[in-house]
Simulated assay, not measured.
Amino acid sequence: MRSLSADEVRWLRVRAQGLAGSAGETGSTGSAGSAARTVPDAVRTAAAVQAQAAGPARLQIWSRSRGLRAADVDAAVAEAAVVRTWLMRGTIHLVAVDDLRAFLAVLGPVNLRADRRRREQLGLTEALCARAMDALAEILAGGRALTRAEIVAELAGHDVVIDLKSQQPPHLLAFAANSGLICRGPDGARDEPTYVLLDGWLGSATAAPPDRESGLTRLAARYFAAYGPATVTDFAAWSGLSGADSNAAVDLVRDSLAEVAYDGRRLLMPHGIEPAPPQCPHRLLARFDPYLLGHRSRELILDPAFAKRVNAGGGMIAQTMLDAGRVVGTWKAGRLEPFQDLPAAGAEAWQAELAAAAAF
């Protein structure tokens, strides 16, 4: 078994994530090393991207693509080439349409079980949720895309009364999404989310949900292509699956994976990928970037002394500066905030990244 250094593990992960070159100029699809030139390809490079908010999701795609602009991301969303719904760890992700059914077949039931107690605490009983599912199918029929407030107002006319200002609406919408009924639709003014019927939104891409084994296979294959070298424990942390389910998924794809050693642990990655010297190491990453969320620990890429600068609490992940796979600072609105003084040689590269982000 080949042993890897920390630098080699970091670089392999950077390359797998499509972060191997300057944003908008070069990139990687995780295998061939070519730049992602479409929004779905950029999304697949990370398996899926976090999409609680539209702005960070656009920038996550910028970091992994070549020649795209923010409007291209919005167009891909509006055309359902990529779709937003609740997936990994019960959070909203943007995923390529051809991966959606497989991911949802595995993660939907997991998320429904994980959120059951909170639904009960909020008064979202099984009977109320069942009525809401029937009502949503009528309310959103005919290709309608409604905001959360509009949905709550119309649900009341179907004997489903919930409080718009409470946590009931998001948990009810998540229930419907994880049940495969709805997903996020096109954004309204100021990026306000709308919701649509999943089958109607996918149109010609609609297909019967795959069996669970096929879903586990697709999920694990996408993960290790995007985040390897990684452990089964890393896969479980990223996906939200149990240890048993994670092991079962990895067993399904194990023949396609190679084992490597790092720091006394066995890591898995696709066969045929060799470490290579880092190139274009200066990168800017969006909030909630998948590079920081794909493994159980960030210590390999982020000095614990600066961890609070990146994640101050509440699940918020700051926009970060990446240098050869290490997080070396944060940034805001065209301003760099490095943890320590930057070498003069890197100043030009960082400014180029800021300019590219602004152009996007």
Results as ranks from 00 to 15, higher is better:
Gln351Leu: 11
Ala96Asn: 09
Glu79Met: 04
Ala130Lys: 07
Arg58Cys: 07
Ala345Ile: 05
Trp86Gln: 00
Arg64Ala: 06
Arg335Thr: 13
Ser31Trp: 15
Val49Lys: 03
Lys332Ile: 07
Glu154Leu: 14
Ala81Met: 03
Ala318Trp: 06
Leu354Tyr: 09
Ile317Tyr: 05
Ala47Trp: 02
Ala53Tyr: 10
Arg296Phe: 12
Arg190Cys: 07
Glu120Asn: 09
Gly334Val: 14
Thr125Ala: 04
Arg212Thr: 11
Arg265Cys: 11
Asp98Cys: 12
Val82Thr: 11
Ala261Tyr: 02
Ser297Leu: 13
Ala355Asn: 15
Glu299His: 13
Arg69Gly: 13
Thr330Ile: 11
Arg265Ile: 06
Asp98His: 14
Gly203Asn: 12
Arg148Leu: 15
Asp234Lys: 02
Gly24Phe: 03
Arg222Trp: 01
Ala261Glu: 15
His93Arg: 01
Phe360Ile: 10
Ala189Asn: 09
Gln340Pro: 00
Leu284Phe: 13
Thr233Glu: 12
Leu300Pro: 04
Trp238Met: 08
Phe103Gln: 09
Arg218Ala: 15
His271Gly: 10
Ala153Gln: 09
Leu267Val: 12
Gln52Phe: 05
Ala226Arg: 01
Arg13Val: 01
Pro277Ala: 09
Ala96Thr: 11
Pro275Met: 06
Arg254Asn: 04
Ala220Lys: 05
Gly313Gln: 06
Gly228Asn: 05
Leu164Ser: 09
Leu112Tyr: 02
Thr38Trp: 02
Gly123Gln: 12
Arg64Glu: 10
Val232Tyr: 06
Leu104Arg: 13
Val39Lys: 00
Pro209Tyr: 09
Asp263Arg: 13
Thr231Ile: 12
His271Asp: 07
Asp159Met: 03
Thr330Pro: 00
Arg296Leu: 14
Ala356Ile: 04
Ala80Gln: 06
Ala177Tyr: 05
Gly314Asp: 10
Val160Gly: 04
Ser242Tyr: 10
Ala174Gln: 11
